[in-house]
Design a protein around this nucleic acid. Structure first.
Lengths: 343, 343
DNA sequence: ATGAAAGCGCTAACAA
DNA sequence: TTGTTAGCGCTTTCAT
């Protein structure tokens, strides 16, 4: 492996001083150099296959052109689109994203956060929305730039890009109401996520407005297993004869599907189910899932835009960007069952 | 934001020279320093909240502790588990992964590759398996360290971690054969991917061995749309009266589902379908998909291990790691239909 | 418009 | 065992 050409090499070939070469090669400073000289420098660079060493540049400019993206779990299907959205905005600006997973663990979150600080990332995008001991608060105190995506900032004054969850839930409940449902269960995500709270509150409010019975059950995680377990409990122990379930997200809804199947209940004939997120392939499930579509890619884009505005222009374009969501009606919702399917 | 403490600050507080502080703080060199002194340095570091600047370190050691991971598209559900596997091996070794998408474009691949070289990544993991004008060959000539994951190296002498695709296909065909199928279509992925070739060849070989009719159709992409389009053509134009389809991957198989449905055909009653990969939620599709499970997470781990061995120990532990795959029989395969469902 | 020189923060070779 | 010195490759003042 032949050693890579440095800017000194380029300068030598072009017959100029390294400083001049540097100026010629950088957009912001190329105006300061004679057009003809600049051309010579560029030619030399091309000839030598010069690739600037961004580590060295970063050391000098104290910026790494890197953004840390902290998510709970990349295998949760809502995150890949968010990440792609983030990347689609960062890349054209010369930034790269370093994605790390926390698996919902505060300890891991702290660990990866420190490791990214050590890597001199220029900012953070948090997709983890813990309430209490989140590192977001600490980040703010340290003067670190960050934004939240898909989760609210909850006290910490970082900007956030979120979907209009409350509206999505309201649409869901109204849809169910129109189908004749009057007793609806909501399986909410863990209370540590801001989304869980927002959605649960919206559910309660919507039920109150429409004068229908709504009951909230809490899942310990946003996962298929948790959804199934909680739905098992709803069916077997709660004594709440729901004809429909509004799940906190699609994973939970999928768990509800499983529970229903295990209990010999049909969806939507016996119980209607609505998810949240419209994760990829939600329309291919059995039955195709009625769910609230959240524009994850765009959420990613917006969060990146918010962050870059802060970093590059030191301006806060917005403290909160709320994107619209849409109820996608498929086949997991139908008319309310006349007979209560369970005790 | 108070300026971060540097190693010079730590040294000053501890009353030692920066060089000594550096040695005390690094695992590999802490043996060279007096235990008591080292303790004082560590105390000072802790007191000041010292966080080493890894950019500066990288400049000096010419290593960024970063690995570039090049994939076609993060939203293809097989990649998140691979990425997590990679990360699970890299993180404990102090490395971070920078993930970039190419969307199957050679131009983008080249672009992101250069951008990662510029970032001084210590190595690459390629999940894109192009044949011809891949940048892998060029990377090799430049002396860049890299490995391939889930795709074969195809001439370029980089190590690779792959699943035993041929065996998976053979299992699929045998399963179909046992169910009485004698005319099977294979919808192969784009020929630019090594996996497409391997799977198609294995399909042809298996059919020959079992003396059944097998015909290969080529999809222009590994996507749901492509699967649907190709299956439409199989049904409407090919004149090949298949009773079963072995799809090149689950996405393609899902497209086959869609096509079948549009044609009023039932799966598996009229046509059996087998996918490949066992992507997340494949068991929740309608019908639950029979498919070949590939250990994506482990593939990721192995690829990272292969790469780190090369980087840190300059040893090539293996040129090829082949992991076993398994046929997961669910509900998309059944006895061969007696009547040919289409012309 | 260009050259000179300094220095970002760190580690590695060399001395002592 | 510790201090000294130099320099990774780049940008950016300051001079010219």
């Amino acid at each position: 492996m032949t050693p890579r050409a440095t800017i000194a090499d380029v300068a030598r070939v072009a017959g100029v001083h390294p400083g001049t070469a540097s100026r010629a090669l950088n957009r912001k400073t190329e105006g300061q150099v004679n057009t003809e000289t600049a051309g010579r420098v560029r030619a030399a660079a091309k000839q030598l296959g010069y690739i600037p060493n961004s580590i060295a540049r970063g050391l000098r400019t104290s910026s790494s052109m890197t953004i840390g993206v902290i998510i709970p779990d990349l295998t949760n299907p809502i995150f890949p689109p968010i990440v792609r959205g983030i990347d689609s905005h960062l890349a054209p600006h010369g930034y790269s994203a370093v994605i790390v997973n926390t698996d919902g663990s505060d300890a891991t979150e702290r660990l990866v956060f420190e490791s990214l600080v050590q890597r001199q990332v220029d900012g953070f995008i948090f997709a983890t929305g813990h309430s209490g001991h989140s590192i977001a608060g600490e980040a703010y105190e340290r003067g670190i730039r960050a934004v939240m995506v898909n989760r609210d900032s909850r006290g910490v004054p970082f900007p956030a890009a979120v979907g209009d969850d409350a509206h999505g839930i309201r649409q869901s409940v109204e849809h169910l109401h129109q189908l004749g449902h009057r007793r609806i269960a909501h399986i909410a995500g863990p209370p540590t996520f801001s989304t869980s709270q927002v959605r649960a509150e919206a559910f309660v409010a919507a039920c109150a407005d429409l004068r229908i019975q709504g009951e909230v059950f809490r899942a310990p995680a946003y996962s298929v297993e948790a959804g199934q377990t909680v739905m098992d409990a709803v069916l077997e122990q709660s004594g709440f004869p729901a004809t429909a379930v509004v799940a906190g997200n699609d994973l939970l809804a999928l768990g509800v599907y499983h529970s229903l199947r295990m209990h010999g209940l049909r969806c939507p004939d016996d119980v209607s189910v609505i998810g949240f997120n419209d994760m990829p392939f939600a329309g291919d499930f059995q039955p195709p899932m009625t769910t609230v579509r959240t524009p994850h890619f765009e959420l990613g884009v917006e969060s990146a835009r918010l962050l870059l505005n802060q970093i590059e222009n030191s301006v806060l374009t917005a403290l909160r960007v709320v994107l619209p969501v849409d109820l996608i009606v498929r086949a997991s919702t139908g008319p309310a069952a006349e007979n209560i399917a369970f005790s």
